[in-house]
């Protein structure tokens, strides 16, 4: 099985041996896992002799785990959203977070320079300014000011002159 954690893919292979699982992570790290107990949002097991109690939750494509006070969000590799990069692509400007589109200070046809603020998204009283990734012409604006946008939704599309 393959899981994505912060844009990195990790392989996890599981093999059953007598009363334990042997699990190999990233083809090199091996763990002997036994004494597995699952109860609603809690999984307990022994890995290489150490006991763990891990709370988890699963929704849509994402799986959430709390291990020793730190949360980990994993996605199965096949899910589509996982493949969207968190970096701004060459010709689009997208929201980094769910929020309210408060300002789009450009119009279709405007010539913009790299770094020019093309949109401002506000969530939880914080404003996130989204700059143009390169020089170009505003080709399309997908939302109106005052509309709600989701994380990773494209707000402005640019035409880049080569």
């Amino acid at each position: 099985m393959k899981f994505i954690h912060l844009d990195k893919t990790h392989s996890v292979e599981k093999e059953k041996r007598d009363d334990t699982f042997q699990i190999t992570i990233d083809e090199k790290k091996k763990y002997d896992v036994s004494e597995i107990v699952i109860q609603s949002n809690l999984i307990s097991f022994k890995a290489n002799g150490k006991l763990y109690h891990i709370n988890f939750a699963i929704a849509n494509d994402k799986q959430y785990y709390s291990v020793d006070g730190e949360n980990f969000v994993l996605e199965k590799e096949k899910s589509k959203t996982a493949k969207t990069s968190t970096q701004q692509k060459g010709n689009t400007v997208f929201s980094q977070m769910p929020g309210l589109l408060v300002k789009v200070p450009v119009s279709v046809g405007d010539k913009v320079k790299s770094g020019k603020i093309l949109a401002i998204v506000e969530a939880m009283k914080m404003q996130n300014e989204l700059p143009a990734p390169s020089n170009g012409i505003v080709k399309k604006i997908n939302f109106k000011e005052g509309e709600q946008v989701d994380a990773k939704q494209v707000i402005v599309e640019l035409e880049i002159k080569k």
Partner: peptide
């Protein structure tokens, strides 16, 4: 502890029909 989360991720499916797990 990422490895431990990954271990949990392959175990919590119960796809093995809990042969090793006890509800």
């Amino acid at each position: 502890n990422l490895d431990i989360a990954l271990l949990a991720a392959v175990l919590d499916k119960g796809k093995e029909k809990l042969s090793l797990t006890t509800e």
